[in-house]
C-alpha cells in the first residue's frame, strides 16, 4: 500500500516522476504487438495485487500532487466542473461509491463512519475531516460531485440515461485528453464521440452504447485507452491548447525518451443505485518512453505498435509531428525477440 506521496508538478517545471514500483504497475495498454481501435472491456475491479486494477479507485503516489493540480485548474476555470440540476442525486451516489471504496480498500488513509444520514469522512493524505448530512448539500463546502472529485484522481463524467441514450449532464474534467466538458455537457453518447475516426463505420458506438446501457449495479467494467502527451501534463484541454500544443515542437532525438509520455486512461463504468445514472471515471496514468522501456517487453512492444500504427490514428492521437523521432528512439529497445501475450511485464 502507498504510504508515500510524491512532491511533484504537472505544469511549469514538470517535476512529475514515477518510482520504480510505479513503473512496474503502470497500466500498459497493449496486449499484443499491434493496435486497432476496439471495445476491449473487462470486469472491474479485479486484477493482480498491487496493480491499478485491484481496487475500484486506485490511489497511488501521485494522489496528493494530482489533487493540487486539479485545484489550480479549477481556480483558473471553474467551468471544468459542471452539474445540471437534475444530476445532484447522481452526485450523492458517486460520493457514496468513492467514500465507501476508499475507506474499504485503503483503511489507513481514509475513514467513513455513518450514523443514519449523519456521516463522518476522514481523508488523511489531504488532511480532511468532514462531518455532513447525506443528501443535504448545504452541509458540504461544494456540491456532492465536486466535493468528492476534488479528492479522487481522474476525471468523472456522470451520464444520465433517457430515450435509449446516455447524456453527459455532469462532470469534473481537469485531466482530459483533448476534450472539453464545457463543450460536451448536455450532449449524448454519439455527439461526444463524433471525432473518433473509423469507429463510427465499424458500428462500434452502437454496440458500445448498448453495452453501457446494460451495465448493472454491482457489475462494473473497465477499458484502457491511450494517447501520447509531450511533458507530464494533466490538463491537455482544448481550452488550454495554446499552452501545451506548442510543447509538441520541443521534442528532439536527445530529449524524446524523457519528454514524450504515453498517456493511458483507465476508464470504468458504474451504474449508480439511487439515480440510475452511469458514472464514467477516466483515470489518467503517465509514463515517459524510457521508463516504460525499463521493462524490456514493453520497450519492444511499444516500438512495434507505434511503428505499425495506421496514420489516421497517429493523427487522431495527436503525435504525427513526432512519430518518426519516437519510433527511431524506441527502435533501440527492440531486438526483434518475441514478446509474451498480455499487458503485464515479464
Amino acid at each position: 500500500m502507498t504510504k508515500h506521496f510524491n512532491d511533484e508538478t504537472f505544469r511549469g517545471d514538470y517535476t512529475y516522476y514515477n518510482s520504480p514500483e510505479a513503473i512496474r504497475r503502470f497500466p500498459f495498454p497493449f496486449d499484443r504487438d499491434s493496435y486497432m481501435y476496439s471495445v476491449n472491456i473487462e470486469q472491474h475491479p479485479g486484477g493482480p495485487a498491487g496493480s491499478p486494477f485491484e481496487y475500484a479507485f486506485d490511489v497511488d503516489e501521485h494522489y496528493v500532487a494530482e489533487m493540487k493540480d486539479r485545484a489550480i485548474t479549477l481556480a483558473e476555470d471553474p467551468l471544468r466542473c459542471q452539474s445540471l440540476p437534475h444530476m445532484e442525486l447522481a452526485g450523492w451516489d458517486l460520493l457514496e461509491l468513492i467514500m465507501e471504496a476508499k475507506a474499504r480498500d485503503y483503511p489507513d488513509l481514509f475513514g467513513l463512519h455513518k450514523d443514519g444520514d449523519r456521516w463522518h469522512w476522514i481523508n488523511r493524505p489531504l488532511r480532511i475531516d468532514q462531518r455532513f448530512t447525506f443528501l443535504d448539500a448545504t452541509t458540504l463546502p461544494y456540491g456532492p460531485m465536486e466535493y468528492i472529485t476534488r479528492q479522487a484522481q481522474g476525471d468523472f463524467a456522470l451520464l444520465h440515461e433517457r430515450e435509449g441514450n446516455l447524456w453527459m449532464d455532469a462532470g469534473m474534467v481537469t485531466s482530459q485528453a483533448d476534450w472539453s466538458l464545457d463543450f460536451d455537457v448536455g450532449m449524448n453518447f454519439f455527439e461526444w464521440h463524433a471525432p473518433v475516426p473509423k469507429a463510427k463505420k465499424m458500428g462500434v458506438f452502437d454496440k458500445a452504447l448498448k453495452f453501457l446501457l446494460a451495465v448493472q449495479q454491482g457489475q462494473a467494467y473497465r477499458r484502457l485507452n491511450w494517447t501520447m502527451t509531450v511533458n507530464p501534463r494533466l490538463d491537455t484541454s482544448p481550452e488550454n491548447y495554446h499552452k501545451w500544443g506548442p510543447e509538441k515542437r520541443t521534442i528532439t532525438p536527445q530529449n524524446v525518451g524523457r519528454k514524450q509520455f504515453l498517456r493511458v486512461e483507465l476508464q470504468s463504468f458504474w451504474r449508480l443505485p439511487r439515480s440510475n445514472a452511469i458514472v464514467f471515471p477516466i483515470r489518467c496514468y503517465l509514463a515517459c518512453l524510457d521508463d516504460l522501456a525499463s521493462q524490456p517487453k514493453w520497450g519492444r512492444r511499444l516500438h512495434r505498435v507505434l511503428r505499425d500504427l495506421d496514420p489516421v490514428l497517429v493523427e487522431y492521437k495527436g503525435f504525427a509531428v513526432n512519430r518518426d523521432i519516437i519510433v527511431a528512439h524506441l527502435a533501440r529497445y527492440d531486438d526483434g525477440a518475441p514478446t509474451s501475450p498480455g499487458i503485464f511485464p515479464d
Partner: peptide
Amino acid sequence: SLPLNLFALDPR
C-alpha cells in the same frame, strides 16, 4: 439478481 431499471423516472 441485483436490481436493474428499464423504467426509471426522469429527474428533469
